[in-house]
Write a protein that binds this DNA or RNA. Structure first.
Lengths: 334, 334
DNA sequence: TTACGTAATGCAAGCGCTTACATTGCGAGT
DNA sequence: ACTCGCAATGTAAGCGCTTGCATTACGTAA
């Protein structure tokens, strides 16, 4: 038996396709009795509307797309989860695509989502080829950018200031007494959040009169963080504190320290970034920076819906990244 | 300027829409020169094919859908990530929807994905209303079920035996010398994995001649796990070991123990399930069961594609859940 | 009774695309 | 020179749905 169509339902219920369509979409515009007949037919045929046809005819999809770097990191998962729930509550479906931190892939995914007719788009980070923004603007497609704070006026952003957050971290580490500091950050290419964090830390070090900050780039796994930390601790002058671009890297760094017989934080301080669940359970618990991912998710949902429905571009919002003191940062041993 | 259509491109390139379509989909069926003209037109107009139109006309979508409980747990994220990568390599897009462990929501999501014309479907767990399976069968829509090992012959499953895994855990805990055991599991309703784990553990306890296993249901957060453990440890006879339905709950249990001044594993053993990153970084590192989530993701991709392309239903596969010994399980203090 | 307004429904166009079939153009074979 | 075959392209139907407009049915007012 082939997939039933509106027409099958109509025939079954003894009405026209128009009536079936109305029974589904605007039930109060058909008679109670008719509606019931239609519903019965739908049930017996186990009919499901064909989205393509619907989208084509109505020119709306009630769908919002999101392109994130990866689902393999809790931080995006949690933001998305909230986003999805908030959208679902308004009858809007979320389409998720991942870019794997790869520029071309991201562009392709954005195009794919646009082709799928999403009514709005959620993106992470502002740095991407202008051609993409041009395309979105040309179609007047609402989009909001998460995780960064400045859209240079051109974009609606919902996030926090990565640069300032990184500076704060350096300041705190400095205040704790550290002068020999190193940093591990995620791969910078196509990741403006990681870049800003590195930049902010670097500049802050300079302003504080510290020697040039040693920064190691690393991919995003625990193992990679462990390896990067091991490099830092084994070669050259050993720092008394390592600042990490995210919590997973920090957990890896803790491992590396432990393997080298270093006590954290007595022999080495380690600071994370994100405050995911994992940060609370490490030994010692991670001192880190809390990223407002759930709030970003929720606000993103509200803003994109507002924009879609009212056709009025909403304002950007900047949240604070909050310092979370736990036990992986302490004054350096003398 | 409205969204450009195939026709706009055709006009721009001075050819028919058919030729443009061919230039895009079967480039070798048009002349080099024509193809270049078309490509140029596409670029200038920044044309993106309309998915609805495409799907409607070609009756294929090159899309696979997945419905998972939540993105808020690393374990699903990782499986999905691998799934997505494997599918993308074959030019297939993954559509992800979440059910939030809710039956009705899951059914709605499956229908939505079917309506979107997915060529195949990935589901987690086998327990759902038969009507859904009937619908899928009626449309001859390929689907594979992850995370469980028995589709009762009706389904293609790719997973492991939750029941057996739970029995193994009990056996190991028993072998370590524990006789007073409690268990924390995720909410059972609509979650056959959690249920099987609870069941398996319960029966194994019985077989070993242990008193009835005390089982506490909990939602899926660290805090909930902490709370559940606290209940177990404060009321009634205190167990010497707590088996947890997943690692997040186990991490919460460790917290609860610590708050009560109990040393893990000296005063209390705790065992997790899943082996996510978090399991390695807790204090002490979690003894747990490794779930082959990446392998499930990869195999799911291969199987569903095979099924779609060859129209032949693939075989189920059962992986082993592997015991991972770390430091949260030890013999009970005498 | 007749006319009229309104609610319920039907009719049919068309959304953007693919594809079976028709047409065209051109070189090769006779 | 003419036919044939094939490659390149065009023509047009139709995928499943929504929706503006037309039609019908029916209750109410005059």
């Amino acid at each position: 038996m082939p997939t039933p169509t509106l027409e099958d339902v109509a025939r079954h219920a003894g009405v026209s396709t128009a009536t079936v369509s109305r029974a589904i979409n605007t039930p109060d515009r058909v008679q109670e009795q008719t509606r019931l007949r239609v519903e019965a037919a739908i049930k017996t045929l186990s009919y499901t509307p064909n989205f393509g046809g619907q989208a084509l005819a109505s020119r709306r999809t009630n769908t919002v797309g999101a392109v994130i770097p990866t689902m393999d990191n809790a931080i995006f998962g949690q933001a998305l989860q909230v986003l999805e729930e908030s959208l679902a509550r308004e009858g809007v479906t979320l389409l998720v695509a991942t870019s794997q931190y790869n520029r071309e892939r991201e562009e392709a995914q954005v195009r794919a989502l646009v082709g799928r007719g999403v009514d709005g788009l959620i993106l992470i980070g502002a740095e991407r080829p202008p051609a993409i923004y041009d395309m979105l603007d040309q179609r007047e497609l609402p989009y909001v950018i998460l995780w960064v704070s400045s859209g240079e006026g051109r974009h609606v952003t919902i996030g926090f200031d990565n640069d300032a957050a990184a500076r704060m971290v350096v300041q705190r580490v400095y205040d704790a007494g550290h002068r020999k500091i190193a940093m591990i950050v995620g791969v910078n290419a196509g990741n403006d959040r990681a870049m800003k964090r590195a930049e902010g830390a670097r500049k802050m070090c300079a302003e504080l009169g510290l020697p040039a900050l040693r920064i190691v780039e690393s991919s995003y796994t625990l193992e990679a963080g462990e390896y990067a930390a091991q490099q830092i601790l084994s070669n050259g002058e050993r720092p008394t504190a390592i600042i990490c671009g995210n919590d997973v890297l920090a957990a890896g760094a803790i491992f590396a320290a432990r393997k080298l017989g270093l006590d954290v934080p007595r022999d080495l301080s380690i600071v994370g970034f994100d405050d995911i669940d994992l940060a609370r359970v490490t030994l010692p618990p991670l001192t880190t920076v809390r990223v407002p991912h759930r709030r970003m998710g929720r606000t993103a949902a509200r803003h994109i819906l507002d924009w879609i429905r009212s056709d009025q571009r909403p304002d950007s919002v900047v949240y604070d990244a909050e310092w979370v003191e736990r036990q992986s940062l302490a004054p350096p041993a003398m």
